[in-house]
C-alpha cells in the first residue's frame, strides 16, 4: 500500500515535471505576434497592442488568470506552443484541418475574408494559367500559403517572415501581388501612406479546406483550456467587452455570423 502511494506520488511528480509545471503555475502564457496591425503591433516603447492583444487580455480577465504575453514570430507559432513556450495562441490564426492535426482550436473569435492586393489597375487573371510566373508574396506558414500552393502552383511564391516585409517588397516592386486578411491589409497597408497606389484585386477567396473556418485560439491537443476559453469568448461577447475592443479598431463587427 505504502509502496503504491510512493509510486503514485513519484508518478505524479514526473507527470507534473513533464507538463512543464503548468498545473502548478497559475500564470497563463499566451503566444502572440507583433507585426500584424491592427491585430498585433509594437508601440514605440516596445509594448504590444492591437485587437488580438486586447482580446487576449480580456479573456484572461474573464478567466481570472494572471497572463503573460509571449511574443513569437509567425512561422514558429505552433512549434513553440507544442514546445510549451506558452499555452495558447491568440494571433489571428485561422482554424484549418491541417492545423487541427497538430493542435486543438476554440470556436472562432473573429472571421474575416482573404483577398489579393496588387498595384491599382493591375489586371491579373486569377487562374492557374493566369498566375503562372507571377511573383506572389505572403507570410510563411499561413493559410494563404496553402491556398496559393493549391490553386496557383505555377506562381512564383515568395515567403516572408513578417507581413511588414511583404508590404515592403510589394512597394519596392519585387512582388506582383500579395495575399492576406482584408482587415489587416486595410489597416496595415492600404489605408496608410505606404499603400498609396495599391488596391484589392479580385473577389474574397473561398476555400474552407485551406483558408479555414474563422480565426480561433489554438491550444495543445487534449488541453482542457479550450473549453474554458470558449466560455470566456462567449462571455466577453455577451458582456460588451468584445464590442468595446472591436469598435476601437474596426467599423464593422468582425465576429461574423
Amino acid at each position: 500500500m505504502k509502496l503504491t502511494k510512493t509510486f503514485l506520488a513519484s508518478a505524479f511528480a514526473v507527470a507534473t515535471f513533464m507538463t512543464g509545471g503548468i498545473a502548478a503555475a497559475e500564470t497563463l502564457r499566451i503566444g502572440v505576434e507583433g507585426a500584424y496591425p491592427p491585430f498585433s503591433k509594437k508601440e514605440a516603447d516596445g509594448s504590444l497592442s492591437g485587437f488580438d492583444i486586447e482580446i487576449a487580455q480580456a479573456l484572461c480577465a474573464e478567466l481570472n488568470r494572471e497572463c503573460e504575453l509571449v511574443e513569437q514570430e509567425w512561422d514558429g507559432m505552433i512549434p513553440a506552443l507544442l514546445a510549451r513556450k506558452y499555452d495558447a495562441i491568440v494571433a489571428s490564426m485561422s482554424i484549418t484541418e491541417d492545423r487541427k492535426k497538430k493542435v486543438d482550436f476554440t470556436e472562432k473569435y473573429y472571421d474575416t475574408p482573404t483577398r489579393f492586393i496588387a498595384k491599382e489597375g493591375a489586371a491579373f487573371d486569377l487562374t492557374k494559367e493566369g498566375t503562372a510566373g507571377l511573383k506572389i508574396g505572403l507570410l510563411r506558414g499561413t493559410t494563404m500559403q496553402c491556398y496559393v500552393e493549391k490553386h496557383f502552383p505555377e506562381a512564383d511564391l515568395k515567403l516572408y517572415n513578417t507581413q511588414e516585409d511583404v508590404f515592403a517588397d510589394l512597394v519596392a516592386g519585387r512582388l506582383d501581388m500579395q495575399l492576406n486578411n482584408t482587415l489587416q491589409a486595410l489597416d496595415g497597408f492600404l489605408n496608410t501612406d505606404q499603400g498609396a497606389g495599391f488596391a484589392f484585386l479580385g473577389e474574397n477567396l473561398d476555400d474552407v479546406s485551406c483558408l479555414g473556418e474563422g480565426t480561433g485560439i489554438a491550444v495543445r491537443k487534449g488541453d482542457g483550456l479550450s473549453a474554458e476559453l470558449n466560455a470566456a469568448i462567449l462571455a466577453i461577447r455577451a458582456n460588451g467587452t468584445y464590442k468595446t475592443i472591436n469598435d476601437k479598431y474596426f467599423e464593422i463587427d468582425i465576429y461574423g455570423k
Partner: peptide, 23 residues
C-alpha cells in the same frame, strides 16, 4: 532564407510552415 530565397534553411522553414511542424 530571411529574404525569401529557398536555400537549405529556406526549404526547411517552408516544410515546417507548410505542415506546421517543429523539427
Amino acid at each position: 532564407s530571411t529574404v525569401t530565397l529557398q536555400d537549405l534553411l529556406g526549404v526547411g522553414r517552408w516544410l515546417n510552415g507548410r505542415y506546421y511542424l517543429a523539427y
